[in-house]
Structure formats: C-alpha cells, structure tokens
C-alpha cells in the first residue's frame, strides 16, 4: 500500500514537470559532459560490478546486472 501511495505521489509530482524546463539556448550548463546523469559509464560499470558481488542489491540506474558467479 505504501508503495502504491509513493508511486501515485511520484506520478502526481511529475505532472508538475510541464512547468519546469528551459529553452534550448539556456542549456549551456546542462550540456556539459559532467552534467550527464551518468558522467562516467566506465566508472559506473566497475563500481556496479563490485557492489553487485558484495551486496544483495543491484541495478536501479540501469538493468540489474548479472553474468557473474561472484562467489
């Protein structure tokens, strides 16, 4: 139930997204490589592999991973 409420709230708050945003000529900062959501995919994949093999959680940002015995 709590999950459902959370998802609904998230959906509602996204409805407000139409009021956010900028014009194309206002994106010089957002366009910088360091502002990409995953600004270093190689770093992310190395980190994800470490944590995948050491913890019981994975994914979230992207697919959950796998492909490792990780004993």
């Amino acid at each position: 139930m709590k999950k459902l409420v959370f998802i609904l709230l998230a959906g509602l708050s996204l409805g407000a997204c139409s009021n956010m945003g900028v014009e194309p000529w206002e994106r010089q900062n957002l366009a910088k490589p360091e502002m990409a959501l995953d600004s270093s995919p190689l770093r992310s994949s190395l980190d994800d592999h470490i944590y995948f093999s050491k913890e019981a959680s994975s994914g979230g940002r992207s697919f959950g991973g796998g492909g490792c015995g990780c004993n």
């Binding site: 910088k32 990409a36 995919p41």
Partner: peptide
C-alpha cells in the same frame, strides 16, 4: 573530449534518457 564523454554516456540507459537534455548545445 567533451564529445567523447557524451557519446559514451549516451550508450548507457540512463543517458539515453538524457541525450537531448545534454546534446543539443554541445553537439
């Protein structure tokens, strides 16, 4: 380099979703 980073970033799922956000000005 900026393009390098951006191109590789765009291949990740997360960045695919952000491609346009960051792309228009830099490309």
């Amino acid at each position: 380099m900026k393009t390098h980073s951006k191109k590789s970033i765009r291949l990740s799922l997360a960045a695919a979703s952000c491609a346009l956000v960051g792309a228009n000005v830099a490309v």
